Amino acid sequence: MTLNKELVEILVCPKCKGELDLLSGETGLKCAACNVIYPVKDEIPIMLVDEAIPADKWEKN
């Protein structure tokens, strides 16, 4: 099962309200402006600022 594309299109970064890009494999949503990734767990985007992972740390995983 995959993320609902309509949902992904309306989601914005909770911190800056910027656009989010879905990562390949649908493992996270990246905010280029904040340079963070909001993880997707069990097909549910975790859209909490405190749960965001800096992009440079995400890429090391």
Rank of each mutant, 00 (worst) to 15 (best):
Met1Gln: 07
Thr2Glu: 08
Leu3Pro: 08
Leu3Trp: 04
Lys5Pro: 15
Glu6Lys: 14
Glu9Asn: 14
Glu9Tyr: 05
Ile10Glu: 04
Leu11Met: 12
Leu11Gln: 06
Leu11Cys: 09
Leu11Lys: 04
Val12Leu: 13
Pro14Tyr: 03
Pro14His: 03
Lys15Leu: 09
Lys15Ala: 13
Cys16Pro: 07
Gly18His: 10
Glu19Ser: 11
Glu19Gln: 12
Leu20Arg: 03
Leu20Ile: 09
Asp21Cys: 00
Leu23Phe: 09
Leu23Ala: 03
Ser24His: 12
Gly25Ser: 10
Glu26Ala: 09
Glu26Gln: 14
Thr27Leu: 12
Thr27Asn: 12
Thr27Phe: 04
Gly28Phe: 04
Lys30Arg: 15
Asn35Val: 05
Asn35Cys: 00
Val36Cys: 05
Val36Met: 05
Val36Gln: 00
Val36His: 02
Val36Trp: 05
Val36Ala: 00
Ile37Tyr: 00
Ile37Asn: 06
Ile37His: 02
Tyr38Ala: 05
Tyr38Leu: 07
Pro39Thr: 14
Pro39Arg: 11
Val40Ile: 15
Lys41Phe: 06
Asp42Glu: 15
Asp42Val: 00
Glu43Tyr: 07
Pro45Lys: 04
Pro45Glu: 04
Pro45Cys: 08
Ile46Phe: 01
Ile46Ser: 02
Met47Glu: 04
Met47His: 04
Leu48His: 04
Asp50Phe: 07
Asp50Val: 07
Ile53Lys: 03
Pro54Glu: 13
Ala55Glu: 14
Lys57Val: 10
Trp58Tyr: 11
Trp58His: 05
Lys60Pro: 08
Lys60Ser: 13
Asn61His: 10
Asn61Thr: 09
